[in-house]
Amino acid sequence: MPSANTKTEQPVKLTKHDLFQANWRWLWSSQICWNYERMMSTGYLFTMLPTLKKLYKNERDLIEMMKMHNQFFNTNAYVGGFIVGMDMAIEENKGRKAEETVAGLKAGLMGPFAGVGDTIVGVILPTIFGSIGAYMGLKGNPTGAILWLLVNFTVLILRFFLLPLGYSQGKKLIYAAGDKLNRITDAAILLGVTVVGALIPTVVSANVPLVFKTGKVALKAQTVLNQIMPSLVPVALVAFSYWLLGKKRMNSTRLIVLVLILGIVLGAFGIIGKS
């Protein structure tokens, strides 16, 4: 139905409610129809739908902008709201004329945002809090698990500030913050690596229960190993796995199967035991 209102020049203002609605939709829908062909395109479209309907009264414009927003898009869902916010600010001011700008902006920013979001939210936070939670969980203590749950709630709340921030700050912020963001990411990685270093001796549980007997003297293999270095077997196993992962035909799934079989065989022969 072609709209009677053809004065598309009339500027339409987006309200706080519009921003909230987009935020809410991004949270729930960004990956809800994720697929191999265009990944998060549908989620982005769903997030923008109310805004598009408000901004483009002309049906042709609406259809073209929906098409544009349903093109390939993939980023980290936690930080992607920032891109949506910027997009909304641009479309509010420029309307349909911004079609190419917005398409370029989306394509240009999804990679960098994915990099930062995947590293910090996807890997570093789970490394730190997942490690602490697992370390305590192995002893049956739920404190670490609950701590992680609280951290996830905090992240959920913080996510809500990104879209309005993108809307108000526009393009300039991401470039200005680029260096700062890199330093924060690096510092977070450093913290993660330190925790991983501590994980090796605490959560890998392996000793060598072999005993060698020469005459009357019994020599416990583990005692000898401990004199060289504590947790020598876990360190060796991690180093071995790390080296294997560098091989061409090795991937995480194969490594899991390999270590599982290795553990069963060595355990069955009594070469390695759980300490």
């Binding site: 890997v123 490394t127 990685i189 450093l190 993660g192 690596v193 330190t194 991983v196 270093g197 994980l199 090796i200 959560v203 890998v204 549980s205 392996a206 876990p234 196993l237 991690v238 071995f240 796995s241 790390y242 294997l244 992962l245 560098g246 995480s252 490594l255 899991i256 270590v259 599982l260 290795l262 553990g263 069963i264 065989v265 060595l266 355990g267 069955a268 390695i272 035991g273 759980k274 300490s275």
Partner: peptide, 30 residues
């Protein structure tokens, strides 16, 4: 065997993580 395997399986996660992170740059912190 499963008991022993359960004990050493965490090395997989640690090794994958170290491959993902720029470990060589931060090896001193490890």
């Amino acid at each position: 065997g499963l008991t022993a395997a359960g004990g050493i399986l965490p090395v997989v996660g640690i090794a994958i993580l170290l491959r993902f992170l720029p470990t060589k740059r931060f090896v001193s912190y490890l």
